[in-house]
Design a protein around this nucleic acid. Sequence first.
DNA 1: GCTCCTATTTAGGTATGCCTAAATGGCTGC
DNA 2: GCAGCCATTTAGGCATACCTAAATAGGAGC
Lengths: 234, 234
Amino acid sequence: MTTAPQPTVTEAVDDYLKAIFELAEEGGRASTASIARKLEIAPASVTGMLRKLAEQDPPWIAYEKHRGAVLTDRGRQRALEIIRHHRLIESYLHHTLGYSWDEVHDEAEKLEHAISEQFEERIAEALGDPQSDPHGHPIPRKDGSMPERNEIGMLELEVGAGALISRVSDRDPELLRYFSRLGVRPGVRLELVERSPFDGPLLVRLDGATELTALGNKICREIHVSPDGPTEEP
Amino acid sequence: MTTAPQPTVTEAVDDYLKAIFELAEEGGRASTASIARKLEIAPASVTGMLRKLAEQDPPWIAYEKHRGAVLTDRGRQRALEIIRHHRLIESYLHHTLGYSWDEVHDEAEKLEHAISEQFEERIAEALGDPQSDPHGHPIPRKDGSMPERNEIGMLELEVGAGALISRVSDRDPELLRYFSRLGVRPGVRLELVERSPFDGPLLVRLDGATELTALGNKICREIHVSPDGPTEEP
DNA sequence: GCTCCTATTTAGGTATGCCTAAATGGCTGC
DNA sequence: GCAGCCATTTAGGCATACCTAAATAGGAGC
Ligand SMILES: [Mn+2]
Ligand SMILES: [Mn+2]
Ligand SMILES: [Mn+2]
Ligand SMILES: [Mn+2]
């Protein structure tokens, strides 16, 4: 079984598809402005590229003027492929080459475009087919499916509820080092003890510590948790 | 100590510098045509690029019309940096990720441009600072020096002489698989038993085998050996 | 010293992917 | 229902790195 005849996709195309996928995940269509912000390029440049992506023979996206972009099946497949690369590479750098979790993102951002399918296979195998990367982001499977999880934003957690930290944002290395100091990382248990008024900090007990930890409202937006499932009925 | 302010070098520039370095190693200046052949691009394109490389602020090469190119110190430094990347990556793929030696070159050709200095350091460390890659090519050190060796082309070996295979060409995977079948690889001892006339094959004894191995004249050009040093005087 | 031949360069063009500035159009508020 | 604002698109450019075809120049051979 040979691979599809994909006539070489550029790095730029891959970055657009990935950006559009991630924006869609965060809700709805990907607007020109949101893509421009994420890729740090001018909106006018995005318009031009969206037209091209939509006009490719099997199109990567559906695009209507003034209405933003949505990935086609092909576009989604490709985006997942690149995201799989990215997250496997992050995991490999962290677990095998001793990178700290705030160092992996930038390296992966470049390598995701450069590795072959063979490299992808080998590192996945070396890691034992991990389900998530060092920040807790789910790694798409080869078949394009995503490990599903029951996840909410930290801010949506109810006072008194317990949860497992499932993932944190990986964009800001500074923030990641702060999370490290606090002991905030995927897999850690927490209990929301108190929510300060006026969008103030959340007070949480991490991993059964005696001390409480205060998490500012803003950084809580960068944390997702899996709330404890309902205890099974008797 | 911060790294030099190198204002981003493109992949194409790196590939030209590497090609010029390798051509110079094989003897003399790098001509427009030889660079074009090596990079598989049109000679006219090479001319244009050579002009640019020579006109950069600190120039990468010295270039005179109709006389080919020579690397400046800066150009050589950069070429060695990329070659170090390439050969460390080949070694890592082979020793750590289970690639066979005919699979490493193409992967390394892309990755050499994508990895950071940190990645370079980590894999060098993981491998224990190797001196040569899976094909026996010497790996430039961080300081730009090259492990020196006493090496000649296989065809220059004298009948009756013994030698250690030091390196083989890594460009043709097919040839590498053939070498594997024959048992030709760096580190293997051989003795030149007979040289057939009219540029015929060389008959060698590999690693003290009873059978002789015939190596065609053409493929011998792709093998380098370290002849046995003179036995020390009494 | 001149003639060719060939390597090399010049001229002109293409694709990609970005930019700024100017035009436009969708929508919100009144 | 329209005024205006702001997101988006259009227009026009630029840099990089390739191409083909045509012009040229270096040097080998006579
Ligand atoms: Mn990227
Ligand atoms: Mn991540
Ligand atoms: Mn390369
Ligand atoms: Mn090699």
